[in-house]
């Protein structure tokens, strides 16, 4: 191995170390008895988990997060798929503007989305409801869902739909028996990915949640106080949840892509 190759491998390793250090550290600290963790580590403990999960507020937050992320993921996936299908199937005037609108949300800072949603939801009387969070997370998730579904539809033979009509299937039957089965892996990927987006989102949720905290909002509010290793315990659970979702999303998507 040449020095240059060795150096580039080392650099890559350092980058990956940096990226995964906070995740690994969080997990390690969550089992470490020190209140202010440092090296060398103190003794092994379940104390922080016990503490976090004896707290009713944390349980409420998990319930809220699950409800919000499942609903928002389902809605994002539906909207993202519809938009991707529209882009795949139809050409129409102002299509560029239509697609721009669909893909714009990730470019608006979350704090601003939070403020705008808070102001608007208060105006229409939905501030502080779980629906408000779901509405916002659906906006944030659907561009990701659209991207995933669009990539999958790109692999579909454009004659496939016509072939189904030709064999006596109406457009609706074709959607049900051809387009949806073909897109199934992308729909699962999009669902997992948008569930992860929603499960981790804290800024907009913090603005509009009111008393209905989700997990990241609960973390944020604990963080307002002092250093508290509970967060590592909750954080580890959150990491595992969202990483599992993202890994599932990517695995299904990548496997299907290779098989065509």
């Amino acid at each position: 191995m040449s020095i240059a190759t060795f150096a580039s491998r080392l650099y890559l390793a350092a980058v990956f170390f940096f990226v995964f250090l906070p995740i690994g550290a969080s997990v390690v600290f969550s089992f470490n008895s020190d209140r202010f963790p440092t090296l060398p580590l103190a003794s092994f403990t379940f104390e922080w988990y016990a503490k976090a999960f004896s707290d009713d507020k944390i349980w409420d937050a998990f319930r809220n997060s699950v409800a919000v992320s499942l609903t928002a993921a389902a809605m994002s996936t539906f909207i993202g798929f519809s938009t991707a299908y529209t882009d795949f199937r139809y050409g129409f005037r102002f299509k560029a503007a239509y697609l721009a609108l669909a893909l714009l949300p990730p470019t608006i800072p979350l704090v601003i989305m939070g403020l705008a949603m808070l102001a608007w939801l208060s105006q229409i009387g939905l501030s502080g409801t779980l629906f408000g969070i779901i509405a916002a997370h659906t906006v944030l998730g659907s561009p990701f869902a659209m991207a995933v579904c669009r990539l999958r539809l790109h692999q579909m033979d454009p004659s496939l739909e016509a072939a189904a009509w030709n064999l006596g299937a109406s457009e609706w039957a074709t959607m049900r028996h051809v387009v949806l089965p073909f897109s199934a892996p992308a729909l699962i990927s999009a669902f997992c990915l948008t569930a992860a987006v929603s499960f981790d989102e804290f800024a907009v949720a913090w603005f509009v949640s009111g008393l209905n905290r989700t997990v990241p909002v609960a973390i944020l509010e604990i963080l307002q106080g002092n250093v508290d290793p509970q967060i590592n315990a909750i954080g580890t659970v959150v990491f595992i949840t969202s990483m599992t979702l993202v890994v599932i999303a990517q695995t299904i998507f990548m496997r299907r892509n290779r098989n065509g």
């Binding site: 202010f36 990241p216 973390i219 963080l223 954080g235 990517q250």
Partner: peptide
């Protein structure tokens, strides 16, 4: 994977580190 994973908790981990 990390791009979609709990930025808030990762920032907190840095705070400790």
């Amino acid at each position: 994977v990390p791009f979609f994973t709990s930025y808030l908790v990762r920032a907190y981990a840095w705070q400790v580190i």
